[in-house]
Design a binder for these strands. Structure first.
Lengths: 152, 152
DNA sequence: GGAATTCGTACCGATTCAGTCCTGTTTCAA
DNA sequence: TTGAAACAGGACTGAATCGGTACGAATTCC
């Protein structure tokens, strides 16, 4: 289904909340309540995001999480990559040289391009844009992230 | 991982073979041998594609499969849609109105656009282009399928 | 020192995926 | 007319992944 996992979905929602109040430092229970998501899940995702250095964590009694960078400097591609590994639509793109019919496979080079297109699209969308849907008008058209896609 | 299933991957390879010789009618064992894929799997996929009317099947001893339309008239979006259901990156896009935090969810409307972008990208690539990678030069840029992506 | 919080890891049930197999049904050709 | 070849439609299975939970350890602040 070309679908991201719920974990990633939740993660983006959580990051959106964090991006809305960059000064405030949220802890896991706060975020879980705000996003109406189960706490253990939220905790797990936040840990992952911290390890991938999209969030910075602060331990102790007044601890919590905050964005490691400005929301404008975090792309959707980074987030998805952090939460579920490198973006690769087909297996033969992520697993290099493991495909027995690679020499005769005319499909592969095109997949690579399509994959690149999707990746570029996601890299061109920042967390800030996801957080403020009504506010910004961002065109990815002419000259933008998705403009240059072509097959060979 | 934003990944298509192997079934879909195989299906595209099979369709590519069929597109390379549109006159020839292949049967399942032939295709399995050519693509070096297990026969039961190939058979299963071909059945699916026939039911979704991307292929036409001919029963009997001289039976087999051939494309239901010209390769130029079959898009990647159709193929993927046939083999693994509608293209929906997030669950809240495919399952309508099932999201408890929908009113407060600023993420959703943007997902919808990103999803639409991916879908449009895949709709703009035909099977013929996948089959002949060296031959065609197709730009999806300015005015093409991916040009108009924007966040509100 | 104690309480609150994150960190790491292990675990479990349910679902999906990849692949196989079997029992028809249809068609062609000898 | 009969048998072989091929598609049609399921049912089935083992493995992997996903979604979610739990618990002990480390850290920091009061």
């Amino acid at each position: 289904m070309i679908r991201i996992t719920k974990q990633t979905d939740y993660g983006i929602v959580l990051l959106t909340h964090l991006a809305a109040n960059p000064e405030h430092q949220y802890n896991a229970p706060e975020l879980a309540a705000e996003a109406r998501l189960p706490l253990p899940m939220v905790s797990k995702i936040l840990k992952l995001l911290a390890r991938e250095s999209l969030l910075v964590s602060h331990r102790g009694v007044k601890g919590g999480y905050s964005l490691a960078r400005q929301a404008e400097a975090i792309s959707m591609a980074e987030i998805i990559g952090a939460l579920e590994g490198p973006i690769a639509i087909t297996e033969c793109i992520s697993v290099e040289g493991d495909c027995s019919h690679e020499p005769l496979c005319p499909v592969r080079s095109n997949w690579r391009r399509i994959n690149q297109a999707v990746r570029t699209a996601l890299a061109g969308i920042t967390l800030a844009e996801m957080a403020h849907p009504k506010q910004k008008l961002v065109s990815l058209g002419q000259g933008g992230a998705l403009a240059g896609i072509q097959l060979q």
